[in-house]
Structure formats: structure tokens, C-alpha cells
Simulated assay, not measured.
Amino acid sequence: MSLGNHLYNARKNKGLSQEAVAEKLGVSRQTISKWETDETLPDIRQSKRLAMLYGLSLDELIEFDLDIREIQDVIDRTSEAVSEKIDWTKAWSRKYPVLARYQGQVDIPYYAAELWKLLIDLKKKYGYNDLDAFLVLKDILAVVWKSRKTQQK
């Protein structure tokens, strides 16, 4: 994504028109348009004011190679009903093929029973509901995975 596209999306996410942004910054609407079409770039002072106006840090405003914020927005907008319709194993197996084939290789009941014990323990010790216990366990697994990868380097 170009910087101009990023500026455009940040403005739209705040529900502002080019005119409104131009007025707040003391520039013309055409200037905002030129920034959003990558014809020109805002200077550092204008960039700082844009970041404040859009509720972003300056780093977030100019980070346009990979916009994690956009990914987070998609997650936030995904309703529980839609999320339940998604076959997450199938979706992620496109990136990680092992997810499409492990069911025929792994003793699932054994691991399920062990994981269930951990879920019950989290629920008892911390008062989590089923979903919260699952999410905490998933996050713990991610932390273990990341620390192991760091140790291997």
C-alpha cells in the first residue's frame, strides 16, 4: 500500500472529508488530494498534525508497507456469527498444509483429553468461561512456541 493510500484510509477510518482535514490543517483540499494520490508528500509538521487528527502515532501514520491496523480492523468487524461459519482449519491449511492432513496421523483423542485437563484447570483456578480458557491456552501455546524459536537461534 502506498503512503497516499494509507493517508486516504486513515482519513476515511476517522469519517473525515478532505475538506474537513484541509480546514483543520490550514491547507487546501487539493493539497490533501495530492497527498492521498502520492503526487506530493506532507512535511514533518503536517505529518505530525495528521497523525494527531487521525488518532495514530507518527510511526503508524507513515508505516504503509504492512498495515497491521487494517488487519485488526477486519478482525474487529468480523461478527461472532460470521466467525462461526468460517472453516478456520481449511482457511489456515492453505498457508500451513499440515492442518489439512494431521487428522489422519495424530491420536486426536489422546491430545484432546490432555488439553481438556488444562482447560478445566484454567477454568477452576482463574474462573474463566470455556472460551476464555481456550483463548488463554492458545495464547500460552503461542508464547511457548515463540520462546522456543528464540532459543533455537
Score class of each variant (00 low, 15 high):
residue 136 V to C: 11
residue 69 R to W: 00
residue 83 S to I: 01
residue 124 K to F: 00
residue 150 T to A: 15
residue 28 S to W: 04
residue 28 S to A: 11
residue 150 T to V: 12
residue 6 H to D: 00
residue 51 A to Y: 02
residue 85 K to T: 10
residue 126 Y to F: 06
residue 89 T to L: 15
residue 14 K to W: 00
residue 123 K to Q: 08
residue 43 D to L: 13
residue 92 W to F: 13
residue 60 E to W: 01
residue 65 D to T: 07
residue 99 L to Y: 12
residue 92 W to G: 01
residue 86 I to F: 08
residue 59 D to H: 06
residue 129 N to I: 02
residue 32 I to A: 02
residue 147 S to R: 15
residue 77 R to E: 08
residue 58 L to G: 01
residue 15 G to A: 04
residue 33 S to V: 09
residue 99 L to Q: 06
residue 83 S to D: 10
residue 139 D to T: 12
residue 59 D to A: 07
residue 71 I to E: 08
residue 116 W to T: 03
residue 4 G to T: 04
residue 110 Y to K: 15
residue 56 L to G: 03
residue 42 P to I: 06
residue 16 L to R: 08
residue 138 K to Y: 07
residue 106 V to E: 05
residue 146 K to Y: 06
residue 10 A to E: 02
residue 32 I to Y: 02
residue 87 D to S: 14
residue 140 I to V: 15
residue 57 S to K: 07
residue 55 G to H: 04
residue 134 F to G: 04
residue 98 V to S: 10
residue 49 R to Q: 10
residue 114 E to H: 08
residue 2 S to A: 05
residue 40 T to P: 12
residue 95 K to P: 03
residue 75 I to G: 05
residue 112 A to N: 11
residue 11 R to M: 01
residue 88 W to M: 10
residue 63 E to V: 02
residue 77 R to N: 09
residue 68 I to H: 09
residue 119 L to D: 01
residue 36 E to M: 14
residue 111 Y to N: 03
residue 64 F to C: 15
residue 72 Q to I: 07
residue 42 P to G: 09
residue 21 V to F: 03
residue 25 L to P: 13
residue 125 K to T: 00
residue 59 D to Q: 10
residue 135 L to A: 09
residue 24 K to V: 00
residue 44 I to D: 14
residue 108 I to M: 14
residue 132 D to S: 10
residue 12 K to C: 01
residue 144 V to G: 07
residue 63 E to H: 07
residue 80 E to W: 04
residue 20 A to F: 02
residue 28 S to M: 10
residue 88 W to D: 05
residue 133 A to I: 04
residue 111 Y to F: 13
residue 91 A to G: 04
